[in-house]
Design a protein around this nucleic acid. Structure first.
Lengths: 217, 217
DNA sequence: GTCTATAGAAAGATAGAC
DNA sequence: GTCTATCTTTCTATAGAC
């Protein structure tokens, strides 16, 4: 029926370049796993989008599973969110959610990679490990107060749940929500989770406010 | 190698009973989709667990996709969470999360069905529709205050994110968290989201408190 | 380093016997 | 109403040519 198409140029074979080929496969895998999840994409698809055949995927990465692990490491490498102090965390998390899940946003990001690959048991193992190292750990060390690890995981879980509803499921209520009011809600929610006592009142600007008015409650 | 096993009795054929067979397939599908997700299970697996062959799945439900839609309707039918008034909502949501994601909990429930099937685009469509009808709508009508639909979706997104981290990913920080303190955090978070102004302070018991002290802030 | 060709398993769905 | 047998497609992975 329809002729198979080459994504790259119409050369008979790709020019020999191991590192460039490996990188092309890795980027293609990152995009494909983000868009369709581990079980939703085959090594053929990934190879074709990178301009090579499926053989090279296994040659460079050993197996689909190992390719996935490599793609996860690349996707989760961005640490910019956790570099400032904790006062920028709530606005930063809110902005990341809003921009990466808006209507015509690039569908390639670590959240979608995670959400769409988590159903596969082996992928889930790889993800659990990478989340702990790249997200839970740095976020935990940014939080003050008791049970920082627990609260960090809650914050990340909230981020993932919102991304799920906004983009993977596509809930109308969240996908079409007014951006300003939704941002406000999220920022407040994150601020409260970040505040050192998640189960107490008014964590917003707590450290400043409580010096001025200890009997606020 | 290993002989295939019949789940049911060792009769050559299942006794003829259309409604019982249909129901057995439906329950088997519900369990399988919850455990492994839409893409993680085949109609053969579902049929075998129901004690029939794969032919009957398509005979009774038309296709895997239609079987999935039927299973979703069954899974999402439980409305007990939204029957009381909104004062029981936060404790109820917290209890549902904690019990259904504890260590040895039954892995068959609507949350896992949703989380593990959402990556498939057709399953996502079916889920989006059923979530709107069975969860977003009743929860929205239980919430007072502005942007109830938006806030209902946020609440559901938070529930799903927590279930994801506790059980599908298996984040150690949340899976092994102290049940009492985690419950407390969740209850507070839900109470704030349920309170009529998600972006303002102290929604807990707001309606009572604000009558006594308007200048609390 | 990259390819074609293919092995071997498993998927969804259907024809036709009983 | 239920089965066996089979069609067709797709999957991961590998052998071997160039």
């Amino acid at each position: 029926m329809i002729e198979k198409q080459r994504v790259s140029v119409d050369q008979p074979k790709r020019p020999r370049n191991a590192v460039a080929t490996r990188e092309a496969i890795l980027q293609s895998a990152l995009a494909a796993f983000s868009r369709h999840g581990y079980d939703g994409v085959g090594v053929r698809d990934i190879a074709q989008a990178a301009g090579v055949t499926a053989v090279l995927v296994n040659r460079y990465f050993g197996s689909k599973e190992e390719l996935f692990a490599a793609a996860v490491e690349v996707a989760f490498a961005d640490r910019s969110l956790f570099e400032g102090d904790s006062s920028m965390l709530a606005p930063g998390l809110t902005a990341v959610i809003m921009t990466r899940t808006e209507k015509d946003a690039e569908p390639i990001n670590p959240f979608f990679l995670l959400l769409r690959s988590a159903p596969n048991p082996r992928a889930a193992e790889i993800l659990r490990d990478s989340i702990a190292r790249h997200f839970e750990r740095p976020l935990t060390s940014l939080l003050r107060g008791p049970r920082a690890g627990e609260r960090a995981a809650i914050i990340l879980a909230v981020v993932m749940g919102l991304s799920l509803f906004r983009k993977v499921i596509g809930s109308k209520a969240l996908a079409d929500a007014n951006a300003a009011s939704l941002s406000g809600d999220l920022k407040t929610m994150f601020q409260r989770l970040i505040g050192s006592a998640a189960s107490r009142e008014s964590p917003v600007r707590r450290s400043h406010a409580e010096k001025r008015n200890q009997r606020r409650l």
